[in-house]
């Protein structure tokens, strides 16, 4: 595995988001072990791995919701723990796998919730905030759903509205002068519960955001083909360890797919889309020892 892992130690000159030797344990159960990678401004990084490989935990660490047990996560070279919650939320937003509401809000209200980090206590969203929320909805093609009840939307619509709410976190009022800092979107399995059509909708929305707004993204997913259609770099994660990392064309190979999922697969460049496609065709016996390590 050493030859594969060497990719993880690669260093960039101007990292936007950087994880260095990050380990994390829930109580005594070690979930992540010395994970390192970095995200360049405007990059789309995929965290790929089977269920239970620690992807969601890694994303929560990146979002500052958890603190690493060991190692360091930095945004623009600044340790996440040292950034104020509201400041962080203006630059980095999270989109969970699914969003279930306890009470029924309208789509616009959900988008406006993204303005939270910009408001002082007791401040009410002004016309400018409403404009920014509407603009965010427009960016994900959900502007016409504005008055709908969120609970009645389809899975794909919900996901795009939640992405819009995340984008509203980045929106800057005219008074917030200065250059717009690079924004990071963290998405946890954004397509896991969607059918093919909605998967395509979400993928094209993400590609467009990356192209038009140069939104940087970290996307956790177990769907290799979805990752191949959106990400430029990937980290392969299995049982909390990095198996391989690097540009997707270099990393996505039959041997890495076998090491990741225990399947034999054909990896080809798709003639029409131009990105890699993975077709699994046989199950293999587990190669990696089942190491649920206790510390």
């Amino acid at each position: 595995m050493d030859s594969l892992r060497s990719g993880a130690v690669r260093s960039l000159e101007c990292e936007l988001l950087q994880a260095a030797n990050v380990s994390f344990a829930y109580k005594r159960h070690l979930v992540l072990r010395e994970v390192s990678f970095d995200l360049a401004p405007g990059g789309v990084l995929g965290i790929l791995g089977p269920n239970g490989s620690g992807k969601t935990t890694l994303l929560r660490l990146l979002g500052g919701l958890l603190r690493p047990t060991a190692g360091r996560i930095a945004l623009d070279g600044c340790d996440l723990g040292n950034i104020a919650k509201a400041t962080l939320a203006q630059r980095m937003a999270m989109v969970p796998q699914e969003t279930h509401l306890a009470f029924d809000y309208s789509v616009l209200e959900i988008a406006l919730m993204g303005r939270y980090p910009h408001l002082r206590s007791f401040e009410v969203e002004g016309p400018e905030d409403i404009e920014l929320a509407r603009a965010a909805l427009a960016e994900t093609d959900t502007a016409m759903l504005e008055q709908r009840a969120f609970m009645t939307l389809s899975g794909g619509e919900k996901q795009r509205v939640v992405i819009a709410s995340a984008l509203a976190q980045f929106g800057r009022r005219v008074a917030d002068s200065g250059h717009r800092p690079v924004e990071v979107l963290l998405l946890d399995e954004p397509t896991a519960s969607l059918d093919l059509g909605y998967q395509l909708d979400v993928a094209s929305t993400l590609r467009r955001l990356n192209r038009d707004r140069s939104t940087s993204m970290v996307i956790s997913t177990h769907d290799l083909n979805f990752a191949a259609s959106v990400c430029d770099r990937v980290v392969l994660l299995r049982q909390g360890r990095v198996l391989a990392a690097g540009p997707i064309r270099d990393v996505l190979r039959p041997d890495t797919v076998r090491a990741l999922y225990d399947v034999e697969a054909t990896v080809e460049q798709h003639a029409m889309t131009g990105h890699m496609t993975v077709v699994p065709w046989a199950r293999r016996a587990t190669t990696a020892p089942n190491t649920h390590e206790e510390r």
Binding site: G63, G64, L88, A89, A93, P96, G114, Y116
Partner: peptide, 9 residues
């Protein structure tokens, strides 16, 4: 959800 709330500050 508490994660989404925390991620918004």
């Amino acid at each position: 959800g508490s994660d989404s709330a925390a991620a918004r500050g």
